[in-house]
Computed example of a mutant assay.
Amino acid sequence: MKRPLATTYTASGTHTWHADTTMFDVVIHGAGGGGGSGVSHTSAGSRIPGPGGGGGGVLFLVEKRLRDLPASIEVVIGSGGAGGATAGSANGSFNPGSSGGETRLGTIATLAGGTGGGIFGATVGGAGAVTLAARGGAGGASGSPGESVNSAPIQHLSGGGGGGSGSASGGASGWNNPSTGAGNAGRNATGVSTWGAYVATGSGGGGGILSSPTGKAGGYPSGGGGGGYQTAIGSAGGPGANGRIVIIEYLEE
């Protein structure tokens, strides 16, 4: 008989295997990308809302055998990408968001983070991270919402939602984490428990709005940050959410 034992990592460290472990599963959530700032302009018609950051992907490895692995293994949790800083005052000024950092479990698996909004231009949302399991949602651009992602039938293991562009909503993740409206932070993962560990994924942050122009943070884990509002001096983007690793060991009894 095998008994599951789950360990969740929200910060980097070292995992030491239990003496009775024979096999294990791993759920790796990548970090979300930060949203870009709005584009500055003295003319209201020429201002552009900031693009959202891409959501982090999810990788699920099952029934991995422990043999030939060291007694301890390095755990690296990627940080969510920073939102693009407030733009300069000159017409056309803009700052992209940063991409999410790498999340890694030793040499077993590595997940890149979602791309920062505006990395490839002020009107280009960040790309969602691509994995063999569940990709992240793309960030919205030019006032569009972030992409919602749904990896049916294992919907609570969907990637992080994409951040909304300025004045638009963030993208949903799976069936249990709906999108948030513009001006609202992404929803953190809640309410889905597997093997005693929460493994759901965050939704994308909403874009900034007139009354609250900074882009909003992506939901934890993996949500992309929202883009800044289209003000005369382009407002800052919101940060992407950090990654996370859940290790489920199966103990012989």
Rank of each mutant, 00 (worst) to 15 (best):
L59D: 11
G113L: 10
A241I: 05
G206E: 02
S211E: 12
G237E: 07
G215F: 00
G170W: 10
T16L: 10
V39M: 12
G140L: 12
G13T: 07
V192L: 11
G116R: 05
D20I: 00
G218W: 03
A152C: 13
G170Q: 07
A141L: 06
N184D: 12
G57L: 07
I73H: 04
H18A: 15
P145M: 01
S222L: 01
F60L: 11
S43Y: 08
I73K: 01
W17N: 06
Y220N: 11
T194F: 11
S211N: 14
S169P: 07
S99N: 14
V75T: 01
A90Y: 09
L5C: 10
N242R: 05
N242W: 02
S179G: 15
G226D: 05
Y9W: 13
D68C: 10
V246P: 00
N184W: 12
K2Q: 14
V75N: 02
H41F: 09
A197G: 06
G36V: 07
G114T: 10
G160M: 04
G117Y: 09
E102F: 04
V149M: 09
G50Q: 02
G164W: 00
K64Q: 15
G53P: 08
N176M: 13
N242C: 03
G202W: 06
K64S: 08
G227K: 03
I108K: 04
G225V: 07
G226C: 08
D68N: 15
F24H: 12
T14P: 00
W195Y: 15
G52V: 09
G83M: 03
G243S: 06
G13V: 07
D68G: 11
P221Y: 03
N95C: 06
T131R: 02
A129M: 14
K64Y: 08
G171Q: 02
E147H: 01
G215A: 07
T131Y: 00
T22L: 11
G50S: 06
G32E: 05
G227E: 01
G13K: 08
I108P: 07
N177Q: 14
S148Q: 09
T194I: 14
E252D: 14
A185W: 02
N91G: 12
K2L: 12
G140Y: 06
G219A: 08
G191K: 05
V76G: 01
G234K: 00
S165C: 06
G35R: 04
A182E: 09
G128F: 03
V39E: 05
R244M: 15
G143N: 12
S40Y: 04
G204S: 07
G234T: 03
G207P: 04
G140N: 13
P145T: 09
H41G: 00
I154L: 15
A189D: 00
